[in-house]
Design a binder for these strands. Structure first.
Length: 479
RNA sequence: GGUGACAUCGCCAAGUGGUAAGGCCAAGGUCUGCAAAACCUUUAUUCCCCAGUUCGAAUCUGGGUGUCACCUCCA
């Protein structure tokens, strides 16, 4: 039974889809005005695993993720550089895709953009006004929070408490300081669209309400993003959507929010300027390592970033991958057909443990722990076969490896090389040359010419090639 | 000021009432010509502090301390 922690109710709940066997999920995407930093990457890796797991369990998943490609920050960036806003958004949308591809994040089913949904947004704003929840002032349209009795239910705040703490200069035209813009009138020189209220553009929040409604319907299963979106973004989305559709039970049923990535225990954010971008970290570590680093911690916990911890993740991932390769190696051997019931038990137990962990609010940290346990079993078994030439149950070992592979597919690892991209630039030594040197070294070893053998090994190591001897011969890999 | 989260081995981290998973690092051992990889062993009678509930608490309650976050753009 899958349980998820729902921010709306503040507890773990059994997941019951709106439609049996199907899942609709809307994940808040990025505002493309900059390259994503690793804090931005966390929700995308997290939701990627959620999606992979749900699909693994047989759900048909529809995943929608927006681009908020019209916003103050985009206009500002365009003005600063003296280019059009389209230049900015195109550049960073491309940057976004490059980043998540490197992190092995599978693409969403659709990436709707605000600027391609202006008529839908205008229509929704009009419906909200018609229902009595919105009001127009000088070309701006505001949502009246006092009209919505459930305002604050997601973030657990009371309107009164928030008013007490409000400290930005309040637009005195607003009925309530917490009222937020559905539609903003255009200032001179700003991009705009024609609307019933004059030239303007959508406010922040409305795009997610509109596009989730359009592609997932009035009621769908999951909505998520980083914890900082709980208020005001998601709170406002709820208000807009429910007041548009006139049913306080509609909209997303399960709200999942990931914790922050911190640096020196402080939130990584663009405004604090203490962030590390995904493109930058990818210059030093393979995407899969960054991904693994994120998934080693439960998605709701804070995660502190440091060089040391990413190195730890790298060491751990390498361990898992070594077992994967070792296991695959003996699968190439014939084996026998004698049934090894112990192998079968190990495989079943591992799968059950893994599912149990993932069923508990997508506990990847625990699930990965079970992968380590299984990797030990694989190493022990495979080493025994290789070193002692023992006969083995190929069928059941194959099944065990399949379990390991299935786990890896949910976590999204072993799917790309752990080598750094630049190592593949055609520079350096070719595989043929390496093989030739290994052959020469084998000959030297045969003649007990240890000096030459070690010389070859050291020289390859200096070029980033690691040799591993075993009874079955010598393997090589890049460091 | 309001609201919420968190505090578990040197480091990271799982664990929400039944007697502390796992990873990294370290030490010793096995294997190896030597390495590497792998495997074995060792490493928290203890979970920030105090009090309480309970047969039993890291897990529940109350209080304290510390850290972080949201209330303003933020994943």
């Amino acid at each position: 039974m899958l349980k998820v922690y729902n921010t709306l109710t503040r507890k773990k709940e059994e997941f019951v889809p709106q439609e049996p066997g199907k899942v609709g999920m809307y994940v808040c995407g990025v505002t493309p005005y900059n390259y994503p930093h690793i804090g931005n990457a966390r929700p995308f890796v997290t939701w990627d695993v959620i999606k992979r797991y749900l699909r693994n369990r047989g759900f048909e998943v529809k995943h929608i993720q927006n681009f908020t490609d019209m916003d103050d920050k985009i206009i500002k960036a365009a003005n600063t550089e003296g280019v059009s806003w389209e230049t900015i958004t195109e550049r960073y949308i491309e940057g976004y895709f490059k980043s998540i591809d490197a992190l092995n994040v599978q693409r969403a089913d659709l990436y709707p953009k605000v600027t391609e949904h202006i008529p839908d947004i205008i229509n929704m704003v009009q419906r909200i006004i018609d229902n009595g929840f919105g009001y127009v002032i000088d070309g701006d349209v505001y949502f009246s929070v006092e009209k919505f009795p459930e305002y604050g239910k997601l973030s657990g705040r009371k309107l009164e408490d928030m008013q007490a703490g409000a400290r930005v200069e309040v637009d005195s035209r607003k009925h309530n300081p917490m009222d937020f813009a559905l539609w903003k009138s255009a200032k001179p020189g700003e991009p705009f669209w024609e609307s019933p209220w004059g030239k303007g553009r959508p406010g922040w929040h409305i795009e997610c309400s509109t596009m989730s409604l359009k592609y997932l319907g009035e009621t769908f299963d999951f909505h998520g993003g980083g914890s900082d979106l709980i208020f005001p973004h998601h709170e406002n989305e709820i208000a807009q959507s429910q007041c548009c559709c006139g049913d306080y039970k509609s909209f997303a049923q399960y709200w999942l929010h990931n914790g922050f990535i911190t640096i020196d225990n402080e939130k990584m954010s663009k405004s604090l300027n203490n962030f590390i971008t995904v493109p930058d970290i990818l210059k030093q570590y393979p995407g899969e390592v960054v991904r693994f680093f994120i998934l080693r911690t439960h998605y709701r916990s804070p995660l502190d970033f440091s060089e040391e911890r990413i190195k730890e993740a790298q060491a751990g991932l390498l361990r898992l991958k070594n077992a994967f390769e070792l296991g695959n190696e003996i699968l190439e051997k014939a084996g026998n057909t004698e049934k090894d019931t112990q192998l079968e038990e190990i495989a079943e137990k591992a799968m059950a443990d893994f599912y149990e962990a993932m069923d508990d609010d997508f506990n990847t940290a625990l699930a990965i722990g079970f992968m380590f346990t299984l990797s030990k079993e694989i190493n022990t078994y495979a080493n025994n076969v290789i070193n002692k030439g023992t006969d083995f149950d190929a069928v059941h070992f194959g099944k065990l490896m399949q379990v390991y592979k299935d786990m890896a597919a949910v976590i999204g690892i072993f799917e790309s090389s752990l080598e750094m991209p630049e190592a593949d630039d055609g520079e350096g030594i070719s595989p043929e040359e390496i093989e030739a040197l290994i052959a020469e070294r084998a000959e030297a070893k045969k003649n007990k010419n240890w000096g030459r053998a070690d010389e070859i090994r050291d020289s390859l190591k200096a070029q980033g090639i690691i040799l591993e001897d075993s009874a079955a011969g010598t393997k090589w890999k890049k460091a």
